[in-house]
Design a protein around this nucleic acid. Structure first.
Lengths: 232, 232
DNA sequence: TGATCGGCTTGATCTGAATCAAGGCGGTTT
DNA sequence: AAACCGCCTTGATTCAGATCAAGCCGATCA
C-alpha cells in the first residue's frame, strides 16, 4: 500500500506526470503544512529550506522592500514555488504572503537537489515546468513594457477566468492592493481603471468581477486583429 | 579522438559542467552557424527547431510587434537562448536580432528533447540554468515595478561592467534604441537620463560609457541604506 | 451601540516619461 | 561633393499614472 501523502503530490502540476517510483520517494520526504491568511510563509533573503506546493488556498509572491513592494504573481492549488532557489541553493528573491487559509506540501530543498541528480524523470519534469514559468514571466515583461494600465488589467482579468468566450465571473486572487501591484499600478489607479472598464462590460462588486463578454475585453487588448505587415 | 565541435560546446555555460559522454552526444547533433549584424536569427511565432548557443558575437531578444517592441535582454558568448521553447515544443515568444557579426552553435530541439529523457546530467543542468534565468527575469520585473528610469539605467550600467568597485569603461551591448527598450523607456528619455547621470560621474562617448565610480552610481540605486521605517 | 481601523473609492493636483517636432552628425550612395 | 539616410540629441508640449487628501463602508472590538 502507498504513502498517505501520495494523493496530495499527484495534484501538483510539477509532480503529476512522474512515475510511481519517483513519487514514492518524494512522498517520503514531504510534509504537510497549514498556513493562515495574511501570514508570511517565507521571506526574501532567507536560505532555501523547502519548496512549497499548494494543496489548498493560495499565496502572493512579492519582492522588494515594504512600502513599495513588487507583486510578482499569485499562486494557488496545484502550483508550486521556489524551485529555482531550491535547486541553486541561493537565497530567496521573493517573499510569500498567504491570500487565504490553506495548506501546502513542503519538500526539503536538499532532498530535491539529491534526487535531481539520480532521477531523470524528475529532472526533466523540473526543466519543463521551469520552462513554462519562463514563458509566463516573459509574457509579463512584454506586457509591462508595451501595454498601458487598462490593457494590462483587461488581459489579467481574462487570464483569471477559466473560460475564453462569452461571459464570466471571477474572484480576485488577492486584495485589490495586491492586484494593483501585480499590474504595476497603484490601488487608486486600479480603482479608476476598473471604472473605465465598465464601458466594456466589466462589473465590480467587492472582489467579485463579472465580465459580460470576454471577446469584447480581448478586443481592448489587441485593438486591430487583422492588420499586420509582412517583413519583406 | 573527440569531436571537432566539442571545444565550442565546452564554452557554453549550459553545457560546460556536463560529463564527456553527454557532450559527445550533443556535439554529434550540433552545427555551427554564422550570422551577421542586424539579421534575424528567428522570429516570434515560429516553431522551435533549434536552441542557439553563442560562440562569438551577440543578439538581442525582442518580443512584440514591430514599432513598439519589448527588448527582453542581450545575449553574448557562452550564453544560450530558446531552451524553454525547445523543451516544450511551443512557438517562440520572442525574436532574436544580431547586434554584431558572430557564430552560434545550433542544437536541434527534437534531439535535445530526446536526450533530456535519457540523460540525468543534461536534464539536471537544464533545470539549473533555467532556474538562473528565472531569477534574472524576476529581478527585472521587480526593477521595472519599483524603480524609475534613472535608477534602472544606473543599475543596468553597473550590471554591464565586470568590475564592481572603482571606475569602469564599457560598451553598450546594442544600439541606444535597443538599450532604451530593454530599460522600458524611449530613446529620447535614455538620452536625457544619460545626461542626468553625468552629475554622478557617467560619461558618454557614442556607445562607450565611462563610469568614474561604481560605488557612487550604486548609491543612486538604493538611495539611503540606513534609513527605513518600521511598519508600526 | 458606538468607536475605531483598514481597505477601497473619489477628487484635485503634480510629475516623469511619452510624444511631437526640429536639427546635428557620421556613413553610404550617386 | 552633393544629396541622402538612419541614429542620436535637444526642446516644447502632452498625458497617463502617481501623489496628496478627504470621505466611505464594512469588520472588529469595547
Amino acid at each position: 500500500m502507498s504513502h498517505p501523502r501520495l494523493p496530495f503530490l499527484k495534484r501538483i502540476e510539477l509532480f503529476a506526470p512522474l512515475p510511481a517510483a519517483s513519487l514514492e520517494r518524494l512522498a517520503e520526504v514531504s510534509g504537510l503544512q497549514r498556513f493562515s491568511n495574511h501570514g508570511y510563509l517565507f521571506r526574501e533573503g532567507e536560505e532555501p529550506d523547502f519548496i512549497y506546493c499548494f494543496v489548498e488556498g493560495g499565496i502572493v509572491l512579492v519582492g522588494g522592500a515594504d512600502g513599495h513592494e513588487a507583486v510578482i504573481d499569485f499562486f494557488g492549488p496545484g502550483e508550486s514555488v521556489l524551485l529555482p532557489a531550491a535547486l541553486l541553493g541561493l537565497p530567496y528573491l521573493v517573499s510569500a504572503r498567504a491570500t487565504s487559509d490553506g495548506q501546502a506540501l513542503l519538500i526539503p530543498a536538499s532532498k530535491l537537489r539529491e534526487q535531481l541528480n539520480d532521477d531523470v524523470a524528475l529532472a526533466a519534469q523540473c526543466a519543463r515546468v521551469l520552462s513554462r514559468h519562463w514563458r509566463v514571466l516573459i509574457s509579463q515583461i512584454k506586457e509591462i513594457k508595451t501595454h498601458g494600465a487598462a490593457e494590462r488589467l483587461a488581459h489579467f482579468l481574462i487570464s483569471q477566468s477559466e473560460k475564453t468566450t462569452g461571459s464570466a465571473t471571477l474572484i480576485l486572487p488577492g486584495m485589490k492592493k495586491e492586484v494593483a501591484t501585480r499590474l504595476g499600478i497603484k490601488p487608486e489607479t486600479l480603482s479608476r481603471t476598473l471604472k473605465k472598464l465598465r464601458d466594456y462590460g466589466v462589473d465590480t462588486d467587492g472582489d467579485t468581477i463579472r465580465i459580460a463578454s470576454l471577446e469584447r475585453l480581448a478586443a481592448l487588448v489587441s485593438p486591430s486583429p487583422g492588420v499586420s505587415q509582412a517583413g519583406s
